[in-house]
C-alpha cells in the first residue's frame, strides 16, 4: 500500500468510498452517524473497521448495501463499486447487485434468519433471485453443496430444518452459506462472531478466511474486537464518532499506532497473552454525542495528550489526509506521536 487511497480519479479498487456521509434527522437534531469516510478495498483483501458502539461502523456497511434507501437517512459522497457509483444507481439496479455482487453477514444469526422458513428455503431464495432460470432442484443441489462447503454436517437433512433447530455456530455457518451462495465479490461481515462463543468464533473466522481464499472475495469485517482484526484484516480503519481516526495496514495499527484513541483501545484491553498489568488504562469519559460532537478534535475531551494551547485540540478540526500512507486524524505532529508510541504505548511483545 502506498497511500491510503490513490490520487483522485485513479482508483482501480473493487470498492472505493469517497467522503461518505450518513445523517439521520431526529427530534433532538441531526445525527451525523458517518461523517466523511474515504477508503479503498481491492479484490481478495480484508478491511477491518474497528470502533465502539456509535462509532458509525455498522451504518457504513448499511450505506454500502443501500439499506438506507427509503428511510429518512441522507447518504452523501460516493461509493464506487467496479467503477459504478452505488449511490447514483436506480433502486432496481442496486437491488440486483445486492446479494449477487455484495453480500452481508449479520451479527446475530438467530434474528437475521426468518424463524418461519427453513434454512434451505431462505438460501434457495437468495440464490434463485439472482439465478431465475435455474430449476428448483438444481438450486437446491447447489445450496446443499454450499452448506457442505461451510462445514454443516449432513446437509441433505439440515437444509430442511428451521433456524431454531441449528446451534449458534451452525446458524452462522448457514448465514455465511447464504451470503456466499452467489459468489459475491464483496462480503460485509458486521460483528460476525460477537454473539458466538470463543471456540465457535475460532471456527467461523477460520471458515471465512478459507472461503475468501477460495473465492477471492473482498471482505469488510466490522468489529469492536482488536483480536479479530489482528487475525483477519490486511488493513484496518479505526473509527470514532462517525469519522476515521486512523487508517493503515494491520502492522501499522498494531506496531506503530499513532492516534491516541487507538492507543487507548490497545491499552484498555486486558490481554490474554500477557502477565497481568497492575491496572488497566481505560479511556476516561464516554463516547461523543453524534448530534453535537465536541468542538475541534472529537476525541479531545478524552485524550490524555491534548494540548489546547499549542495545538488547538479543542478548536481546530484535525484532517484525515487520505494521501498519506498511514493517515491519522490528530493535531499532534507525527514525530511526536511516534515518540509517544515508542516510549509509552509499545509493549515488549509487540
Amino acid at each position: 500500500m502506498s497511500t491510503w487511497v490513490p490520487t483522485e480519479g485513479t482508483s482501480e479498487a473493487l470498492l472505493s468510498v469517497r467522503d461518505l456521509k450518513v445523517t439521520f434527522p431526529t427530534e433532538d437534531g441531526l445525527v451525523k452517524a458517518v461523517d466523511g469516510l474515504t477508503f479503498d478495498l481491492n479484490a481478495g483483501e480484508t478491511l477491518g473497521i474497528v470502533g465502539e458502539s456509535g462509532s458509525g461502523k455498522s451504518v457504513t456497511s448499511q450505506a454500502i448495501m443501500g439499506l438506507h434507501r427509503g428511510t429518512r437517512a441522507k447518504v452523501e459522497g460516493s461509493i464506487g463499486f467496479e467503477g459504478r457509483d452505488l449511490l447514483k444507481l436506480e433502486d432496481e439496479e442496486l437491488r440486483v447487485m445486492r446479494g449477487r455482487d455484495i453480500a452481508m453477514i449479520f451479527q446475530d444469526p438467530l434474528s437475521a434468519l426468518h424463524p418461519y422458513y427453513t434454512v434451505g428455503n431462505q438460501i434457495v431464495e437468495a440464490y434463485k433471485i439472482h439465478h431465475g432460470k435455474t430449476s428448483k432442484s438444481a438450486a437446491r443441489a447447489h445450496v446443499i453443496d454450499m452448506l457442505e462447503r461451510v462445514g454443516i454436517p449432513n446437509p441433505q437433512k439440515r437444509i430442511d430444518q428451521y433456524p431454531h433447530e441449528f446451534s449458534g455456530g451452525m446458524r452462522q455457518r448457514a448465514m455465511i452459506a447464504m451470503a456466499l451462495v452467489n459468489n459475491p465479490r464483496l462480503v460485509i461481515a458486521d460483528e460476525p462472531t460477537t454473539a458466538l462463543d470463543v471456540t465457535v468464533q475460532a471456527q467461523i473466522l477460520d471458515l471465512l478466511m478459507d472461503l475468501q481464499k477460495e473465492m477471492n472475495s473482498a471482505i469488510i469485517i466490522i468489529t469492536h474486537d482488536l483480536g479479530v482484526v489482528a487475525e483477519m484484516a490486511d488493513k484496518i480503519m479505526v473509527m470514532y464518532g462517525g469519522k476515521a481516526v486512523e487508517g493503515g495496514t494491520a502492522d501499522q495499527t498494531f506496531y506503530s499506532a499513532e492516534h491516541p484513541y487507538t492507543w487507548g483501545l490497545l491499552q484498555s484491553m486486558p490481554r490474554i497473552d500477557r502477565e497481568r498489568l497492575e491496572r488497566l488504562q481505560p479511556i476516561p469519559g464516554n463516547p461523543p454525542s453524534l448530534i453535537s460532537p465536541p468542538s475541534g478534535c472529537a476525541f479531545h475531551p478524552r485524550c490524555a495528550y491534548r494540548d489546547d494551547e499549542n495545538l488547538g485540540c479543542s478548536t481546530i478540526v484535525p484532517e484525515f489526509d487520505v494521501q498519506d500512507w498511514h493517515p491519522v486524524r490528530c493535531l499532534i505532529p507525527a514525530p511526536k506521536r511516534k515518540a509517544i508510541f515508542d516510549t509509552e504505548i509499545r509493549t515488549p511483545s509487540s
Partner: peptide
C-alpha cells in the same frame, strides 16, 4: 424492524 427483513433486503429480494 426485525433483523430478518434486513437480511431479506440484503439478499436482493424485490
Amino acid at each position: 424492524g426485525e433483523d430478518y427483513l434486513r437480511t431479506a433486503q440484503a439478499k436482493g429480494l424485490k
